[in-house]
Every structure is written in structure tokens, then in C-alpha cells.
Simulated assay, not measured.
Amino acid sequence: MTALGVVFRPQLPPERLRGMVRAADDAGLQELWLWEDCFLESGIATAAAALAWSERLRVGVGLLPVPLRNAALTTMEAATLHRLFPGRVMLGVGHGVQDWMGQVGARVASPLTLLREHLDAMRALLAGERVTTEGRYVRLDGVALDWPPASAPAVYAGARGPRSVRLTGEAADGTVLDASTTPDGVRRARQLVDEGRKAAGRPERPHPVVVYLHAATGPGAEARLRAELRRDGLDQTADLGVAGGAEAVAAAVRRLAEAGADTVVLQPTADEPDPEGFIRFVTDEVTPLVG
């Protein structure tokens, strides 16, 4: 069964989050996803608030940019959330937007090496191990968590290029694909992830794939979607995004699911006029059609 989520866009001010969380929890939304985009809102702070304001909602962060973060600190924050809200947290890490990383003096020469080292350290620490490593970027000397999660949680990683996608199969427990991914792109990503899992000797372990989908509904939906794709520099003739009613959105979700997505996260336009209403549209109208 395909899980459905919705993004809380950080173009909304942080004080809008509580209303969105309450709407999601009340409506029975499965997953609410957050972003740590520069220079909008923190992923960890918003995740902690969303989890505290809800009773059953699963909350994902996709993604935390690793150039901004020390691996030990990211893992401490992850462990704290997993201990406080077991079974409801999904955290993903990634390269970050390189221009933004350059703006804050955090851009590295080898983003792929950094992501691999960060993932290796995080997964070992969250599993309760004591870690000493002298990597190119991640250096830890006898570090162990005093309060690791009761069981090692999944660590997701986001990727776009083929080498990065393959790395998520090797070194992460799940993969997050952005909204520039078509159904054919999901199929190719699945192949690369499986290659990575096989290379790392972990082909039998489950590896969920999360993909974002541009979506717009209601008055002016088509125009808002096209404007969003133009702003993001995406090909408007490709099979990207969906505008329309529940049937059209559900059909787009099913295409991604058939291509290999385990979770489809609907990404409203930045100018969505009714974010809480969008959540109710997803839960009340789209979810029953997805199955």
C-alpha cells in the first residue's frame, strides 16, 4: 500500500505550522514532511514542534543538508526525537543546494564523500555503537550516544544524480527523490538503489523510496502548477506534476507507486491559497482512490 504525505512548505511562516499539524492530525493524514531549506526554517525545530502538537502523525524531514551539520550533532538530535516520539520520525540527509552551501562557507570539494561519511557515522551511532573515524570530513574520537534509540531507526538520504542515488542504496536505509522525478526516473532510481544495496551486501533489507510530487487543485490549479515548474526550471512537457481534482491526482500517485515509490508526498505550490484545505483534499478525496 502506498503511503501519502503532504509537504509543509517553508515559504509559509513558522507560526502557520501548528494549524497545519492540527489539520493533518484531525484529518488522518499519514505523513507530514518538512524541509530544511536555506534560509527559511530549521528541520529539527519544526519536526519537534510538529510531533509534539500531534498524536499519531508521522513526521519526515527531507532533507537536512549535511554540509551545514556536524554528524554527531545531527545524530544526537535524531536520537532525541526517536526517543521522544518512537515510530513517528523519518529523517533524511542530503547534499544540500550547493549554491546555498557556498553562501554559508560550507561547500565541500566532494559532496558524495561527505554524505557517505555522514551516513556511516549516523547509522553506527544510532545503532548504539562507539565510533572512532578519521574521514576526509567526518572525524569522531570514541563517540557514543548516552541515549540511543531503543532500536536503530532508518536513516533516509536524498539524491538526484545517479552516483548519489546509488550511494543511498549502499549507505542509507531509504531514499528521498525530489519533485523533478518522473515515473521513469523512479524506475531508474530503484535500479540504482538496488545496485547499491547489492554492492554493500544488503540486498534483502527493506529500502523504502519516497518521492515528492508537484500537485495543485482548485481554482487556477493548472496555472499555479505551470508557474511553479517554470520557477524551478523544470520541463513542463515532461510527466512532472499534476493539476486537477482527486481522480487526476490519484492517477499521478498510482503511476509513481507502480514505478516503485513506497511513499508519495504531495507538494503544493508555494502560493497554495488554502494549505489546510489541501491536506483535507488529500485525506478525504485522494487517499480513498489510491488504495
Score class of each variant (00 low, 15 high):
87 G>N: 08
104 V>F: 04
167 L>P: 02
212 Y>C: 10
70 N>F: 00
1 M>S: 14
281 F>V: 07
272 E>M: 09
102 G>D: 06
135 G>P: 02
240 L>F: 04
290 V>A: 04
199 A>Y: 02
20 M>Y: 07
36 E>H: 12
238 A>M: 04
165 V>F: 00
183 P>S: 09
108 V>L: 02
100 W>Y: 15
187 R>H: 03
84 L>V: 09
41 E>T: 14
177 L>R: 01
126 L>N: 01
266 L>I: 07
233 G>F: 06
147 W>Q: 13
110 S>Q: 08
62 G>C: 13
154 A>I: 05
289 L>M: 10
43 G>W: 01
165 V>A: 00
12 L>V: 00
259 A>E: 12
143 V>I: 14
206 P>D: 10
22 R>Q: 15
216 A>I: 08
284 D>K: 14
212 Y>A: 12
287 T>F: 10
29 L>N: 04
212 Y>Q: 13
99 D>F: 15
90 M>G: 12
150 A>W: 04
37 D>H: 15
259 A>V: 12
210 V>I: 14
129 E>C: 00
40 L>K: 11
160 R>A: 13
244 G>P: 03
196 G>M: 02
25 D>N: 03
144 A>E: 13
76 M>P: 00
62 G>T: 15
261 A>Q: 06
200 A>E: 05
271 D>Q: 11
286 V>I: 10
228 E>G: 11
248 A>M: 10
228 E>L: 11
146 D>A: 08
217 T>M: 06
182 T>N: 00
11 Q>V: 15
9 R>E: 07
108 V>E: 00
201 G>W: 04
153 P>T: 08
78 A>G: 09
77 E>F: 00
188 R>H: 15
104 V>L: 06
166 R>S: 06
262 D>K: 06
291 G>W: 03
87 G>D: 08
233 G>C: 06
259 A>M: 07
47 A>L: 11
114 L>N: 05
30 Q>G: 11
83 R>K: 11
245 G>W: 06
15 E>H: 15
141 D>H: 13
267 Q>E: 11
216 A>E: 05
151 S>Q: 14
82 H>V: 00
111 P>R: 02
269 T>G: 09
10 P>Q: 03
167 L>E: 02
111 P>E: 04
261 A>S: 09
41 E>F: 12
16 R>Q: 12
258 E>R: 13
183 P>T: 07
101 M>H: 08
59 V>D: 07
218 G>Q: 02
87 G>L: 08
71 A>R: 01
225 L>Q: 11
267 Q>M: 13
67 P>V: 06
157 A>L: 14
93 V>G: 12
28 G>F: 02
58 R>Y: 01
129 E>L: 04
76 M>N: 09
71 A>P: 01
224 R>S: 15
9 R>C: 05
209 V>F: 10
119 L>Q: 11
92 G>H: 07
251 A>M: 06
223 A>M: 12
67 P>H: 03
274 D>R: 00
184 D>K: 09
256 L>A: 03
147 W>H: 13
267 Q>Y: 15
4 L>D: 03
208 P>N: 12
1 M>P: 15
45 A>H: 11
263 T>R: 13
263 T>A: 09
239 D>M: 01
43 G>K: 03
256 L>D: 03
